[in-house]
């Protein structure tokens, strides 16, 4: 039997009808058309489905939509400015060539945002530690770490 839930997704209130077994990832992608969060492994290993739940990073491939009724969800789409401008972290990823196929990018950028919100000037080790659950098969990570570092350097202390 479907259940009604309320989610605030990227600042917009949504009322949704979901099955108990529906994963947050599928609801975001299929019901709301937010395809930023990606389906990689489905078992918690790759981080490509990362979204922020009440500001904290979780895996939408292992979260039941019914279990997060009433929460606030931020996906990569929510980082765009109201004028459609890219977030500084997104700009930095582009500048550093930190995006190749792009599959890991939404998860990486949300982890970067979560880290920089708490710790505006992380060390390289702290950056690597924070993205340890996000796999990238293309870049070799160096450019991603540099992109995150650059944002932290250009932000005012």
């Amino acid at each position: 039997m479907k259940k009604q839930i309320a989610l605030t997704v990227n600042g917009v209130k949504r009322e949704l009808l979901v099955n108990p077994q529906d994963l947050l990832l599928n609801v975001l992608r299929e019901q709301l058309g937010l395809t930023g969060a990606k389906y990689g492994c489905g078992i918690g290993e790759c981080g490509s489905c990362t979204v922020l739940l009440d500001g904290e990073p979780i895996l939408s491939c292992m979260t039941l939509a019914v279990a997060v009724n009433g929460s606030e969800v931020t996906t990569i789409e929510g980082l765009l400015g109201s004028d459609g401008s890219l977030h500084p972290i997104q700009e930095s990823f582009l500048e550093h060539g930190a995006v190749q196929c792009g599959f890991c990018t939404p998860g990486m950028i949300l982890m970067a945002k979560n880290l920089l919100d708490k710790n505006p000037h992380p060390s390289e080790e702290e950056i690597r530690e924070h993205i340890r659950g996000n796999l990238c098969r293309c870049t070799g990570y160096t450019q991603i770490v540099q992109a995150i570092k650059e944002v932290s350097l250009t932000r005012k202390a």
């Binding site: 918690g44 981080g47 990362t50 739940l53 904290e56 990073p57 979780i58 895996l59 292992m62 979260t63 982890m111 979560n114 924070h130 340890r132 659950g133 996000n134």
Partner: peptide, 9 residues
């Protein structure tokens, strides 16, 4: 344990 995401869940 795992990753930050796993530790948040």
């Amino acid at each position: 344990i795992g990753s930050p995401q796993i530790r948040h869940l």
